[in-house]
Simulated assay, not measured.
Amino acid sequence: MERKTYKVICKISDGGFGEIYKVSSPSINEILVLKHLKFRGNLNEQTYIKNEISSLSSLRHENIISFREVVVKSEEVNIIMEYADGGNLEDFVSEHKTICNTLVVDIFIQILKAVEFCHQNNIAHRDITPSNVLMLRNRTIKLADFGLSMKCMSTAGHPLLCDDFLGNRLFSAPEVLRGIVHDAILADLWNLGVLLYFIMFTRTPFTGYDEEILVQQQTIGNTITTSHCIDLFQRTLLNLLKIIPCDRTCVSKLAEWFGAGGRADTDAYVFRFRRGKIAYMTYFPILEGKFPGLPS
């Protein structure tokens, strides 16, 4: 099969494992992204590169950046992917400073759908941060950068634990910072909690080095309960940012909460329905200040 040709338009960024370029494909008249990865030795021994290609090529979802092809040359791999023309979530949040609750619900439910699909396919992302959540101009969310992703189930159906401890320490779960062999899917849940906090408050709840962060993680529950945020967000944070991994609420349950609706302000719930590409918002009065489906 003849390979397509790609013309570099500009460099977007330096990723954790390689350089990211915006490219054009004259043959199909489309703007795409090229992730350029270098390696030495046998490609079959490059675990992170193999995992990224495997994850991207197997995960087809509207909220996950789409994989187009991989071009392998001598000691380099070029992964061609969908281009997200709206930038990343980190820049979006920094630019807007304050995001209304309705938009927080809309963004976070799309992230939940992407992560839920990964987990359903026994894949942990392991690096869910604002810079790895991309956006289209229409505010469709695209989860990206699967460079640290891993399969969490063997072909024989046995759980696979993670024994490396990479990632952004501000978003890393306690077990990752402590260097404990762990379930990467449960660590993803902690990542999601920190990400939601960032979207809401435009900053991470933790600062400093590993030991300082570990101390702060012990009291994050107090920080959340005294914060001024709606019940849905507060309960979600409390159910994700739990020190004991198995106590964290799974993504499918969270998706149910957010899928049923989100409390947009103190006067109304927001229920979201999708019909094709059109989103409809309907407002209903609060009944005794409770949100259906949340644990008491």
Score class of each variant (00 low, 15 high):
residue 2 E to C: 01
residue 5 T to M: 07
residue 10 C to K: 15
residue 15 G to R: 07
residue 18 G to M: 08
residue 22 K to D: 03
residue 27 S to A: 13
residue 29 N to G: 01
residue 31 I to T: 15
residue 31 I to A: 04
residue 35 K to H: 09
residue 36 H to P: 01
residue 37 L to P: 01
residue 40 R to D: 12
residue 43 L to D: 05
residue 44 N to M: 11
residue 44 N to Y: 07
residue 46 Q to I: 03
residue 47 T to R: 15
residue 49 I to F: 08
residue 50 K to R: 15
residue 56 L to G: 02
residue 66 S to V: 02
residue 67 F to A: 01
residue 70 V to K: 02
residue 77 V to G: 03
residue 78 N to P: 00
residue 84 A to D: 03
residue 84 A to R: 04
residue 89 L to C: 09
residue 89 L to Q: 06
residue 89 L to W: 08
residue 91 D to S: 15
residue 93 V to W: 09
residue 95 E to I: 07
residue 96 H to I: 03
residue 100 C to G: 06
residue 103 L to M: 12
residue 106 D to E: 14
residue 108 F to I: 12
residue 110 Q to D: 07
residue 112 L to K: 07
residue 113 K to G: 14
residue 115 V to S: 03
residue 116 E to L: 05
residue 116 E to P: 05
residue 117 F to S: 05
residue 120 Q to W: 05
residue 123 I to L: 04
residue 126 R to W: 09
residue 127 D to N: 13
residue 129 T to P: 01
residue 129 T to F: 05
residue 131 S to P: 00
residue 134 L to P: 00
residue 136 L to R: 13
residue 136 L to A: 02
residue 137 R to S: 13
residue 138 N to L: 02
residue 139 R to M: 15
residue 139 R to I: 05
residue 142 K to Q: 07
residue 142 K to V: 09
residue 144 A to D: 06
residue 146 F to T: 03
residue 146 F to D: 01
residue 153 M to D: 00
residue 155 T to G: 01
residue 155 T to Q: 11
residue 155 T to E: 15
residue 156 A to H: 11
residue 157 G to H: 11
residue 158 H to E: 14
residue 159 P to T: 12
residue 159 P to K: 08
residue 170 L to I: 04
residue 172 S to P: 07
residue 172 S to D: 10
residue 174 P to Q: 10
residue 177 L to T: 15
residue 177 L to I: 13
residue 180 I to L: 08
residue 181 V to K: 14
residue 183 D to K: 08
residue 186 L to A: 13
residue 190 W to R: 02
residue 190 W to E: 12
residue 191 N to M: 08
residue 191 N to L: 06
residue 191 N to A: 12
residue 193 G to R: 05
residue 197 Y to A: 06
residue 198 F to K: 07
residue 199 I to T: 12
residue 199 I to A: 07
residue 199 I to W: 00
residue 200 M to D: 02
residue 202 T to S: 15
residue 204 T to I: 00
residue 206 F to V: 03
residue 208 G to T: 10
residue 210 D to G: 00
residue 211 E to R: 15
residue 212 E to A: 14
residue 218 Q to V: 11
residue 218 Q to W: 06
residue 222 N to P: 00
residue 225 T to L: 06
residue 225 T to W: 00
residue 227 S to T: 09
residue 231 D to W: 00
residue 235 R to P: 01
residue 236 T to Q: 03
residue 238 L to W: 06
residue 240 L to F: 11
residue 242 K to I: 09
residue 242 K to R: 15
residue 246 C to Y: 13
residue 247 D to N: 13
residue 247 D to I: 00
residue 247 D to T: 04
residue 248 R to E: 10
residue 248 R to D: 11
residue 249 T to Q: 10
residue 252 S to H: 14
residue 257 W to R: 10
residue 258 F to C: 04
residue 258 F to E: 04
residue 259 G to L: 10
residue 267 D to P: 02
residue 269 Y to N: 11
residue 269 Y to L: 13
residue 274 R to W: 14
residue 274 R to G: 02
residue 274 R to S: 11
residue 277 K to P: 00
residue 277 K to F: 14
residue 279 A to Q: 09
residue 280 Y to P: 02
residue 284 F to Q: 07
residue 284 F to R: 04
residue 285 P to V: 01
residue 287 L to V: 03
residue 287 L to Q: 10
residue 288 E to C: 06
residue 290 K to R: 15
residue 291 F to P: 00
residue 293 G to F: 06
residue 294 L to T: 09
